[in-house]
């Protein structure tokens, strides 16, 4: 379980290895403070939606394990509903999280502001669910994968925000300022993260 967490956070980082969640990554990474807020929200939503989507995918959609197959008596394949159900779960979970945070911690709610609802269309969230299905994780693994990839997103967005804050003092060609240099920086960060690629997380953690 821990190896899936480490793998999702560092080696197969959502942002730097798969380019998921790029829109908010580029738009919200101008200051470290907002980046931290968005990163925390993404960890939370990914950690919640992945197990829920796992349950839906396993017990409603997959023909071999579906509860419906048992009731009807023949295999029912509902996998074509996957996209619609996943995105509906994500949208409603984001809504729920938003209401909960508003109720229990108004200060955090105000600091997150518009970024909270925008998580719905963050590709990293849906991507996490789809990767979970494609890689056939079990429940515990998908939980750990959710938190791991959320943490990876957090790391990446905070790192680039810190770099972009420093970048204001450097002399960049006008045409490359802003967006262009942000892309190139992301590429460089991706290469830096690739140096972790040879590591097998299974070997770091002592096996019992």
């Amino acid at each position: 379980m821990l190896d899936i967490f480490l793998k999702a956070a560092f080696i197969e980082n959502m942002v730097l290895a798969y380019f998921l969640g790029m829109c908010s990554y580029l738009a919200v990474s101008k200051t470290v403070k907002t980046a931290v807020g968005l990163g925390l929200a993404v960890i939370f939503v990914l950690g919640i939606t992945l197990p829920i989507n796992w349950v839906i995918s396993t017990y409603l959609l997959e023909p071999s394990t579906s509860v419906l197959s048992g009731i009807i008596g023949q295999e029912t394949d509902l996998t074509f509903l996957r996209f619609i159900l996943f995105i509906a779960v994500i949208a409603s979970m984001v809504q729920l999280v938003e209401m909960m945070i508003e109720k229990f911690s108004p200060a955090l709610y105000i600091s997150l502001g518009i970024f909270l609802p925008l998580i719905t269309v963050n590709c990293a969230i849906l991507g996490g669910s789809l990767f979970m299905v494609a890689r056939e994780y079990n429940f515990a693994e998908s939980l750990s994968f959710g938190f791991g990839s959320g943490f990876g997103f957090f790391l990446a967005i905070v790192a680039i925000a810190a770099i972009r804050e420093k970048l204001r003092y450097s002399d960049i060609p006008p045409a490359l300022r802003g967006l262009g240099i942000a892309f190139i920086l992301t590429g460089l960060m991706g290469i830096a993260f690739m140096s972790l690629m040879g590591i097998d997380p299974g070997n770091i953690i002592p096996q019992k």
Binding site: A17, P173, P174, A175, L176, G180, F183, T186, G187, G190
Partner: peptide, 22 residues
Amino acid sequence: VLPAAAMFIVGIIIWIQRSMYP
């Protein structure tokens, strides 16, 4: 072949485009 190359190429496309059309 690395994912990072895509980022560099987009960055360079943006650079070229904005140099041509200030």
